[in-house]
Design a protein around this nucleic acid. Sequence first.
DNA 1: GACATATACTTGATTACTCAATGATTTTAC
DNA 2: GTAAAATCATTGAGTAATCAAGTATATGTC
Lengths: 142, 142
Amino acid sequence: MSTSSALKFFMNLAKVQALVSRRFDRLNMHGLGFSDFMILYLLHQAGEERMRRIDLADRIGLTASGITRMLLPLEKNGLLKREINERDARVSYVVLTTAGKRLFNEALDTANEAAKDLLPAATVKAIKPLSDILATLGGNIS
Amino acid sequence: MSTSSALKFFMNLAKVQALVSRRFDRLNMHGLGFSDFMILYLLHQAGEERMRRIDLADRIGLTASGITRMLLPLEKNGLLKREINERDARVSYVVLTTAGKRLFNEALDTANEAAKDLLPAATVKAIKPLSDILATLGGNIS
DNA sequence: GACATATACTTGATTACTCAATGATTTTAC
DNA sequence: GTAAAATCATTGAGTAATCAAGTATATGTC
């Protein structure tokens, strides 16, 4: 049996993600890893800068358990805080603090620069159809 | 500052890879995770089914350290074995065993099927430009 | 042919996740 | 209105990786 182009695609996806995430993490953006940055990004985007943990997990593509663990150091460093939901005691919101907002804005510049650096300028123009393909695979971050 | 489309692309790449790798790993292809599968794939492709650890690391997108650790259980399970290089005592080759070859062939079917399942048939045709971009980012597995 | 530098690999400590199970609460169904 | 099912979050145990440092060997330079 031969290897389908679909499978090769997924192998290259895995490899590129490994390379790219290592490069982003090495930037050590103001102390944030890339996943940390994504969490701040999603919160920044959300109305009132607050999200349920489960929604955050879903949106970032991790499990609820993973989110619980990722948030711990960010809370400890005062970038996020926790808020309860009056109507549903199971829920606890994640809320961006002022410090979190400030750090995010700084990190955003760094991240944007790194992203542009990584993605050849010529390629940027061709990116729309690619984003569409990622979207069919669950990549719905905008 | 706004978010460049390049940065959004990388966030979606990260998310999709997280989703996809979880789905592949849940298949538990004959006891192999997706990274294990990739290792066997690359060895299978290599001339004489042997590679230096450093080349394997490079090709799969991990660090040498990561490779050392990933190979341990595969060696213990008899899918791979270790071979020295007569000319250079620093090198130790990774070699696919007969058992490894057999398991790889079984896993390949499962992996191909899963890949086709994941990637909408309509999309497969449109995948070329994304593969090209992945290639510029270091995704050179074929 | 010795010394500095580079290369291949492993190890120690740490981080970032996973799954499966559990606790707490809410919603649904009768 | 109570029992069963679903949902949200956390925890315990484990895996898969990272980086930085260390060991061993090889290569290039003078």
